[in-house]
Structure formats: C-alpha cells, structure tokens
C-alpha cells in the first residue's frame, strides 16, 4: 500500500516534469505568434520609411508639407500633400457626423431598450451592414446616393466628397454601434440595479450609469470609426474623384490620400519613378494620421477604464 503510493507519487512527479516542460515550449510558440503583431507594425513603419526615402531624396520635406498642389502625374509635377489631407479630413468629417450620433443612439437603444428577441435578431443584421464590401458601397455612393443628392442640389458634381462621406458614415455606423453596444452590455447588471433601485428610468440609467461605465468602449468605438473613415479607400476612389483639390467643401470633388494611392497603383507608371514612389510617402502620412488617432484612443481608453 505504502509502496504503491510512493510509486504513484514518483510517476506523478515525472509526468509533472514533462507537463511543465511542454507548457514552457507551448508558451514559446504562443509568444512567437504574439510577436507577429509586433513584427507587422515594425515592418509597416520600416517599409514606409524605407520606400519613401527615395521620394524624399527628390522632394524636400518642406515642399511636401507646405506646397498646396499635388500633381505628381503631370509634366509639371508638384508634391504638396495638403490637398490630399484636406480631402481626407473633409470626407472623414462628413462620415463621423453621421456615424457617431447614429451609432451611439442605436447602441443605447439595442443595449438598454430593445426587447431581448429584437436585439438578438437585429444586431447580427446590423453587423451585416458593416460587412458589405467597401467596393459595393462605392458603387452605391456613385450610382445611387449622388443622383439622389443631385435632385436636391442640381449643381452637385458627379464626383463629390459629400456622397462618399455620407456612405462611409453609414458604413461605419455598425462598427460604432456594435462596439459601443458590447461595451455597454459589459457594464455589470448590479450597476444597473443600483441605478434602478434609486428610481431611475431606463434612459436615465443608460445615460448616467451605463454610458459613463462603458466610456472606454465608446471611446474605442469612435476612434475605430474615425480611423476607418480616414483610411477608407474604395468609396472615395469610386465616388469622390481622383483630382487633388485643396478644399474643405464637401460638395466638391477631391482626392483623398487613399484614392491617390489607388490611382497610382492602377496606372502604368514605372515602379522606380518618383511618381510611383510617392504612394509610400502618401501612405506614411496616412499611417501617421491613423497612428495619432489610435494613440489618443489608446490613452483615452486606459485613462477612463474602470475595473469591474
């Protein structure tokens, strides 16, 4: 009896050693998968800087940042990024004016008011709206929304940032709504009970307890939404036009950074020309813009995160 016990203990010990070693090996494998994310980020930064260095050998950083013309494909090539940035910001502005209010209200409605069954049915359908390929939204913007807007403003050009911005806004509503709703639902039940027990209505509980409690998630939702609008490519490439245009008027056509990259990629410029390499410089600016947004979002999230 005693002997049996000892044997078992030894066996268990040996197998424990094996199990612990296996655990360590698996941990290393898992870690290396995690490092892919780090590698990707480093590679993005490296490639953008490396490839655009050729561009910056020919164009000074000062011209790039201050020149008000962007005409790399013309004989008289000018390389001022400002028109592309203004186009990007204008489209984004229109988009978030649609997406943030609509997304937030829909999220509050779904999370706090909608009957359970309605929520469970509607939420996945709403997510489909965000899953529609962006090229399809581009088609929609160019061939459905713009003609509709032209009925209101007959002077609206066929390519314009308003239509692209509205459609991008609609496109990111599900992202904003879905992430916000998840965040609000993560607010624990006892928090809501605390509020209801004080005699709060649903709307009061939603606005005063759930929304603040889900603040980090909401901030993340908005940042993710804005970031998507800034980086959205196909809708603008199809519906907003390809001409760089320094304006903040959404009823005008203008190229965004992303639309420009698409235009060059589709063209037949030789790969070693400055024109072609300019897409890396434009991409660098785009990445820095989204990076700033993401960093702000990250710190907002961390600052306001509440541990439940």
């Amino acid at each position: 009896m005693t002997q049996g016990k000892t044997q078992m203990a030894q066996g268990a010990f040996a197998s424990l050693h094996y199990r612990k070693t296996r655990d360590r090996i698996i941990e290393a494998i898992l870690l290396s998968a995690g490092l892919v994310a780090v590698f990707t980020t480093v590679a993005i930064v490296f490639i953008l800087f490396y490839e655009s260095s050729y561009f910056f050998e020919h164009v000074s950083v000062k011209d790039f940042l201050t020149d008000t013309m962007w005409t790399p494909l013309f004989a008289d090539a000018r390389y001022g990024i400002l028109p592309l940035v203004s186009g990007t910001l204008t489209v984004t502005g229109v988009a978030i004016l649609v997406a943030i209010p609509v997304g937030t209200i829909v999220a509050i409605y779904l999370s706090e008011f909608a009957p359970h069954r309605l929520r469970e049915t509607v939420k996945p359908v709403l997510e489909l709206l965000g899953a529609v390929p962006t090229v399809v939204y581009g088609y929609f913007a160019l061939l459905a929304v713009t003609p509709l807007l032209q009925k209101v403003w007959p002077d609206l050009p066929g390519f314009n940032m308003l239509s692209a911005g509205l459609v991008i806004g609609l496109m990111i509503v599900p992202y904003v709504a879905s992430v916000s709703e998840d965040a609000m639902r993560a607010v624990p039940k006892y928090m809501r009970e605390g509020s209801y027990a004080m005699g709060a209505t649903k709307l009061q509980t939603a606005l005063r307890v759930v929304v603040p409690g889900a603040f980090s998630g909401l901030a993340a939702a908005y940042i993710l939404g804005i970031s998507r609008a800034v980086g959205e490519t196909m809708v603008v490439a199809i519906a907003a036009g390809m001409m760089a245009n320094l304006t903040f008027n959404p009823t005008e056509p203008a190229a965004t950074i992303t639309a420009y990259i698409v235009q060059v990629s589709l063209g037949d410029l030789p790969h070693d020309s400055i024109g072609y390499q300019s897409i890396f410089a434009a991409g660098l600016v785009l990445m820095l813009m989204t990076l700033v947004l993401n960093v702000i979002g990250f710190f907002l999230t961390r600052r306001f995160r509440e541990a439940y």
Binding site: P188, S195, A197, M198, G199, R208, G213
Partner: peptide, 30 residues
C-alpha cells in the same frame, strides 16, 4: 415610483464608476 420611495443596498457593493460625490448625488440628480 416605488423605487424612488424605497431604497436598496445590495449584497455586493455596487458603486457607479463615478466619483464618490457623484455616486451619492446620483439619486438627487435623477
């Protein structure tokens, strides 16, 4: 209306993710 007249304290402390002041002021603000 019932809950406005009858208060409740729960098993697990459930303060809102707000300041101490705002927690106590909550019902008054409502």
């Amino acid at each position: 209306e019932v809950r406005m007249r009858i208060g409740m304290v729960f098993q697990k402390p459930n303060p809102f993710p707000k300041s101490v002041f705002e927690n106590v002021a909550y019902g008054l603000r409502l």
